[in-house]
Simulated assay, not measured.
Amino acid sequence: MKSLLLLLSLFSGIAAFAQDDPKADRILHIWEMDTKESKISFLKSGNVYHAQMIYGTRQLEADGKTYKKDIHNPDPALRSRTLSNYTLISGLTYEDGKWTNGKIYNYEDGNSYNVTITIEGKTLFMRVYKGVPVLGKTIKWTLSE
């Protein structure tokens, strides 16, 4: 019994250390899509990361100033909200050098998709997919200075 308790405390200590990895917070910046049409800001709550859309040309009406409404949201109560500063990504956790287990919200169809993120230098690679990552799409972002 003592060896089981020792083993459990060792594993929980390793898990806590992995979650407190200072490399995990490298994501906490403003990132700009390589096409320059969007900017997102990553935030942290506990050991979970999320991103807010802070600018996006596709979220604007034809006048280029007014934000569109979230008309395809699966929650009818949210369909009248604007797409200004909405939560784009939620639930990301850091493990083994990448951020995984996240969901990304697509306001254009009201669906959420899986997302995994890696960072190389000043470049963030966002893999968005439904089901298996190999069938997804990678979106490249750069550190906004």
Rank of each mutant, 00 (worst) to 15 (best):
W141G: 05
S9I: 14
T87M: 05
Y105I: 06
L28P: 09
T142K: 05
L10T: 04
L6W: 01
L5H: 04
E32V: 05
L83V: 12
S45V: 03
I71K: 01
Y113F: 14
I14P: 02
D34L: 11
G46S: 02
L10I: 10
F17V: 09
V48K: 09
W99A: 09
I54G: 08
K130H: 06
F125N: 01
T35C: 00
M126Y: 00
Y86K: 00
K69T: 15
G136Q: 08
I14A: 03
R58A: 02
K69Y: 12
K137H: 03
W141Y: 15
G13T: 13
L7T: 04
L88T: 01
A18Q: 00
I54A: 06
L83F: 13
M1I: 01
M33I: 08
K103W: 06
N111S: 12
A77I: 02
K98D: 04
K44V: 03
N111Y: 14
V115Q: 02
K65T: 11
T116N: 08
K137Q: 12
K140W: 04
Y94M: 06
T118M: 03
Y94P: 10
L92S: 01
S3G: 01
N114H: 06
K65N: 11
K130C: 04
N73R: 13
F42D: 11
A77S: 11
T82D: 14
N85D: 14
G56T: 10
L5C: 02
L8I: 15
G91S: 13
S84H: 10
L124A: 14
T138F: 03
V132C: 07
E108F: 12
Y55Q: 11
N114G: 12
R81L: 14
P76D: 03
L83G: 14
T118Q: 06
D21S: 07
K98F: 07
K69L: 15
D34F: 10
Q19P: 01
G131P: 05
D34Q: 04
A62S: 15
K98I: 06
Y129G: 10
I139W: 06
W31L: 09
K44W: 03
E120H: 11
G91A: 08
M53Q: 10
Y107L: 05
S9D: 00
T116P: 08
G131M: 08
A16C: 13
I104E: 09
D70E: 11
I27N: 07
I139D: 08
Y67N: 13
I139V: 14
S144F: 15
Q52R: 11
A18N: 07
T66R: 07
T82Y: 14
G97R: 02
F42G: 10
E37A: 13
V134Q: 05
S45F: 01
L143T: 05
H29G: 10
E32I: 03
D25H: 02
E120F: 02
S112G: 05
L124H: 03
K23M: 12
G91R: 03
G97Q: 00
S144D: 13
T93R: 08
K140A: 11
H72K: 15
M126F: 05
Y113L: 13
N114L: 06
A51R: 01
N47A: 03
L92R: 04
G91Y: 07
G121K: 12
L7M: 09
Y129Q: 00
K39H: 02
T123C: 06
T82R: 07
E37P: 05
K36N: 09
L5I: 08
G46E: 02
Q52K: 14
P74D: 13
D25T: 15
G102N: 05
L28S: 11
A15K: 04
T142E: 10
